[in-house]
Simulated assay, not measured.
Amino acid sequence: MKFKITHNTDYLFNSEVFLEPHYLRFRPRQTAYVDVTDYSITILSEPTGHRVVQDEENNVVDFCWFEGMTNQLTITSTSILETKAFNPFDFLIYPLHFNQLPLQYDELQKKLLFSTLEGQLISQELLDYGTAILKASNFNTISFLTNLTKQLHDDFSVEYREVGSPLQPDETFTIKRGSCRDLSWMQINLLRQFGIAARFVSGYYYFDMLEPAYELHAWVEVFLPGIGWLGLDPSHGIFTGNTHFPIASSAHFENTMPVSGGIRGSATSKLITQLSIEKYK
Rank of each mutant, 00 (worst) to 15 (best):
E254C: 02
Q168Y: 04
Y11P: 04
V158C: 03
S202R: 04
D38I: 00
L19M: 14
E20T: 13
F156I: 07
H153N: 10
R264G: 02
N59A: 03
F194L: 08
A248F: 01
S184V: 11
F26W: 05
Y214N: 02
P212C: 10
P258R: 07
S157D: 15
L113G: 08
L12T: 08
T240W: 06
W185S: 08
T76C: 12
E118W: 13
G119S: 11
Q54E: 11
F86M: 09
P225Q: 10
I5M: 06
Q193W: 09
L112M: 14
N87D: 15
N59D: 05
N8P: 00
A213L: 14
T74D: 08
V220Y: 02
Y280F: 15
Q187N: 11
N189A: 03
D208W: 07
R51L: 12
W185Q: 11
L152A: 09
F194Y: 02
E57K: 13
N189I: 08
C180A: 06
T48G: 08
S260I: 10
V60D: 03
S137R: 04
V61W: 01
V158D: 01
L112Y: 07
E82F: 01
I188Q: 04
F156G: 04
G261S: 06
E16W: 00
L24I: 15
G241N: 13
P102K: 05
S40F: 05
G195Y: 13
A251N: 06
D62A: 01
V158Y: 05
H236A: 07
M209C: 08
G68Q: 13
A32V: 08
T48F: 14
A198V: 08
H153L: 02
I43L: 12
F89V: 09
M257E: 03
F223G: 01
G261H: 04
I142Y: 03
R161N: 07
F207W: 04
F89W: 07
L81W: 08
F26I: 01
H153A: 05
L145E: 05
R264E: 05
T70M: 06
T243Q: 14
N58Y: 12
S269K: 04
P88I: 05
S137Q: 10
P246T: 06
E46Q: 15
T146W: 13
T131F: 15
H252L: 09
Q193V: 05
P246M: 09
A32G: 14
P212Q: 13
P166F: 11
L191R: 03
S184E: 12
F200V: 01
Q109I: 04
T146M: 13
V222I: 12
W229A: 06
V52N: 05
G241L: 11
K150H: 14
L183T: 03
F86S: 03
S157Y: 13
T37V: 15
Q193F: 10
K279C: 02
T240H: 09
E215V: 08
T273C: 02
L12N: 07
F207E: 08
Y129I: 10
I142D: 07
L44M: 13
P95I: 12
S143D: 14
F3G: 11
F26D: 01
Y160A: 13
E162R: 14
L134D: 07
I122E: 04
F245M: 11
E125P: 00
D38T: 01
